[in-house]
Amino acid sequence: MTDEHPLYDAVVIGAGAAGLNAALTLGRARRSVLVVDAGQQRNAPARSIHNYLGHEGIAPADFLDLARREISRFGVERVTASVIAAARETETRFGLMLDNGATVRARRLLLATGLVDELPDVPGVAERWARDVLHCPYCHGWEVRDQPIGVLATSAVGVEQALLWSQWSDEVTLLAHTGPPLDDTARARLNARSVRVVEGKVRALDVVDGRLAAALLADGRRVDLTQLVVAPRFTARVTGLDGLGLEVTNWEMFGQVAGSFVAANPQGATSVPGVFAAGNVTSVTETVIGSAAAGLRAAAGLNLDLITEDTQRAMTL
């Protein structure tokens, strides 16, 4: 970040696939852009990115390094910092306070802050997250195919996850844990896909030689497995942005609140004029390639919004 742009056309908050692709798009549109990168990319613990044509299997860190080098070619600036406060200063200007002591201003904001995975409170789950504790079969299913997979039920979603993961393995076990009691229909569906059901609460995970080996039940039983599937609560990351007045909406799955997101239209415009959003902060189930595409769409919407404002200003001169 430099003093060359006391007022940026756009500040992009967040530097995952959505934020960096938005910055690339805006840089190529000849806009002055600053990316505020807190270094909290959601997929950082994962070994690789999948289902991204042309980047299949790339490590998240390598993907970010490539993306950062690409945006720099178009004059995009980047600062490693977090936003601690944000507010509208005038009708056409926002101010941001960063945790490095800097204040930056922009005509428009684009939020790509992602979400926070709130994991089940079982010892070992957080430590193994994105390694052998997983949630998305499209992200990891191929890599763990034919392995013994446990699904930790904490809600009705557990049944659906078990059915889904049975596409990748014939050794799927639903660990009833704290999920709701299974009715006859649920048991019939699970049986049709050869999913085993184990009643009882999981108290911890057993790790042997750095690898997940089993789920340990409260009654002393042991369920051997090499992968555990969980259903996190997906919460929009909006820390420090309260001053913008964003509309944060509950996300429901199977009749219960399973997360939250910032409401935005298909072009990324939020309910706050001048504030756009893209990626997992607006769509909790979005993958890396989808987030990158959303970043492009939101950047295009933001650029068009600036053009409309610039045109109106020019007409009044």
Rank of each mutant, 00 (worst) to 15 (best):
Leu225Pro: 05
Ile307Cys: 07
Leu98Gln: 07
Asn51Tyr: 02
Ala29Trp: 02
Val257Ala: 14
Glu309Ala: 13
Gly95Thr: 02
Thr25Cys: 13
Leu53Gln: 13
Asn250Glu: 15
Thr311Lys: 00
Ala44Leu: 14
Val83Gln: 08
Val207Asp: 08
Arg128Tyr: 08
Ala298Ile: 06
Phe94Glu: 00
Gly274Asp: 01
Ala86Thr: 00
Leu217Asn: 05
Met315Tyr: 11
Ala300Leu: 13
Asn303Cys: 08
Arg108Phe: 11
Arg189Ser: 06
Ala269Cys: 14
Ser32His: 06
Ser155Cys: 04
Leu111Arg: 08
Gly19Ile: 15
His140Ile: 09
Arg297Pro: 09
Ala10Phe: 00
Thr103Arg: 12
Pro6Ile: 03
Cys139Pro: 03
Leu98His: 07
Met1Val: 10
Thr173Lys: 12
Gly57Tyr: 09
Asp170Pro: 13
Gly179Met: 04
Asp242Cys: 04
Pro180Met: 12
Leu20Lys: 00
Met1Tyr: 00
Asp183Lys: 12
Leu296Gly: 07
Ala126Arg: 09
Leu175Ile: 08
Gly259Ser: 01
Arg105Gly: 07
Val223Cys: 08
Glu160Val: 13
Asn250Ser: 15
Leu26Phe: 07
Val248Arg: 11
Val33Cys: 10
Val122Met: 05
Thr90Ser: 15
Asn191Thr: 15
Ile149Met: 10
Ala258Pro: 08
Val116Asp: 15
Ala218Leu: 12
Pro266Gln: 08
